[in-house]
Design a protein around this nucleic acid. Sequence first.
DNA 1: GCCCAGGCGTCCC
DNA 2: GGGACGCATGGG
Length: 256
Amino acid sequence: MVHIRAIHFDLYQIANSGQCFRMEEISRGKFRVFNYRNDVVIQQDGQDFFFMCSDEDFETIWRKYFDLDTDYIEFDSLIPESDLLLQKGKEFGSGIRILRQDFWETCVSFIISQNNNIPRIKKCIQALCDRNGGLFPSPLNLQIMRLDDLGLGYRDEYLYDLADKVVFERISERELQSISYIEAMNKLKEIKGVGDKVANCICLFGLHKMEACPIDVWMKRVIAEDYHVVAPNWIQSPIAGYYQQLAFYYKRGCEG
DNA sequence: GCCCAGGCGTCCC
DNA sequence: GGGACGCATGGG
């Protein structure tokens, strides 16, 4: 077991922030988190965290996953006083971090997410894992799996196209990390079923390109209702993705 | 039965 | 280049 203290870190908020789909509260303050083939149980008590894993796993896997070396208080301090939506968002989401999730899992998850709701996205991903003997399928696994009876709707062919492109290295995490956000977006949109929104989610949650700013129905609602239909300047910020996540979590928490 | 969901591909203009 | 439309599925 590993004990740490951390601020701007709340497992409940992160689990319900819509950026990950395999993080569940198993008892009060106690969460099980999966990231591709790794998993851990964490107990949170305020600013105290108990990771049920070795020191080595914490240092090599989970410290990075939870982005614990990034100062989110600093990000919050850059929000203008005049931006009432983000001011409320940073209070409501005071424990939000942008996870550094597995690239492959993020691609699969957000292709499934299109025109779908979060509870059902979770069910679809769980069904994929169940079908693969409890493990999240690798690209090679996915290529040969039967998908048409997992409740994915019309998204089966999108996942097969993704798996092919990854297996044949038409899409590679290494390359996407080495190129710019704009170039990565264009590359990702070559995958069937990946448009602007999903590509932004992959850039933000799977590649940690923090300028990526996914615009979904909730963000459109934010722009329409909280910014008088004019998109705020911060969507061009180098950390637009974090601000977008505060806006999403706040808006969805209030109305969803 | 409706409407909606962290949208996108395809048509059509 | 942009705007309608259909798309599978299940929750509310």
